[in-house]
């Protein structure tokens, strides 16, 4: 279990974390969601005993991250944001190095990593630097797991990895969770938020909201409309200049539009846009996703 109380951290004059508090329960898959610079890595490094917070307390399984850092280092598995393995060692050499460092062997804990390791085992004599992005992540995860950690902390494990590998990676995390490992994972991808048990939406060193992904979306009360036309750029500009619109931003092929009045119908929006001479218009009401909630939270939307 991870317990964070009012953690503050600043670098020079930049406040990286401004009073973060959250709890991750035993065996939970918890996601830190937020854009670059939200403070996810800093928070994780504090938990990993690599940085010392300016204020507040944090505990990992009841151990203080400052006082008991040596004991924490025995029971956590960590996968930093950058690929941090030895590129000039082979897959197998990397794994057995980390196994010896933690005083164990590959054979002893093979059970835990088997599902992941079988996928890279055919390449076990290849240098780690020559693996593909997805393979590297699997190797890094194997190395982080080799000593059977109680808590696993993963800093943006799927950044720069293709869609298929990303899905595989999350499936693996789910499996590890079933073995009772508490997992804290950060990601800039909103679509991955839905795969966590609970998420904390972070921005500029603050937690905007903590809940299950489903409840976060449920609590979003505003109406959301989607619109598209041939000229998307002008469409968004037009929408932003209309006084009845609260926000409009591009989302895939559509613009997601939040009206000020929750009663607004798609027809009214369509008429306004036709009046602005947009061709091939499509407008309809949609159910908000977690991205929409996040965008609303970031702009300080009062309707939430």
């Amino acid at each position: 279990m991870i317990k964070i109380t009012n953690i503050c951290k600043s670098y020079n004059n930049t406040q990286a974390l401004q009073g973060i508090s959250l709890e991750v329960n035993d065996g939970e898959l918890f996601g830190l969601i937020g854009p670059d610079g939200a403070g996810k890595t800093t928070l994780m490094r504090i938990l990993m005993t690599l940085l010392i917070q300016d204020e507040g307390q944090a505990e990992m399984n009841g151990l203080d991250v400052v006082k008991d850092y040596k004991r924490i280092r025995q029971l956590v598995g960590y996968m930093p944001g950058r690929f941090s393995l030895y590129q000039d060692l082979t897959v197998e050499e990397n794994l057995s190095f980390f196994a010896t460092v933690f005083g164990t062997t590959i054979e002893e804990n093979y059970e835990l990593i088997r599902d992941i390791y079988v996928q890279i085992e055919p390449f076990k004599n290849r240098l780690a630097g020559k693996l593909s992005g997805g393979m590297k992540q699997k190797l890094a995860l194997s190395c982080a797991l080799i000593h059977k950690p109680e808590i696993l902390v993963l800093d943006e494990p799927t950044t720069g990895v293709d869609a298929v590998s990303r899905k595989e990676f999350w499936d693996m995390l789910k499996k590890l969770q079933k073995q009772g490992i508490t997992i804290l994972v950060s990601t800039p991808y909103m679509d991955e938020a839905g795969l966590c048990d609970r998420v904390a939406l972070m921005q500029e060193g603050e937690v905007l909201s903590i809940d299950t992904p489903a409840r976060i979306v449920e609590n979003y009360s505003s109406t959301l409309l989607a619109a598209r036309s041939d000229e998307m750029h002008r469409l968004i500009e037009d929408l932003r200049h209309w006084e009845k619109i609260d926000s409009a931003y591009a989302f895939g092929q559509f613009a997601h539009v939040t009206p000020k009045d929750d009663e607004m119908e798609a027809v009214e929006l369509e008429q306004y846009l036709m009046h602005k001479k947009h061709n091939n218009l499509q407008v309809h009401e949609i159910a908000p996703g977690i991205e929409d909630v996040f965008m609303a939270l970031m702009s300080g939307d009062r309707s939430y």
Binding site: M48, L50, V76, Y78, Y86, F98, V101
Partner: peptide
């Protein structure tokens, strides 16, 4: 520089 020190520090070494 390569970030491996981060992992070594976190290990019980």
């Amino acid at each position: 520089e390569l970030g491996t020190m981060e992992i070594l520090l976190v290990s019980p070494l």
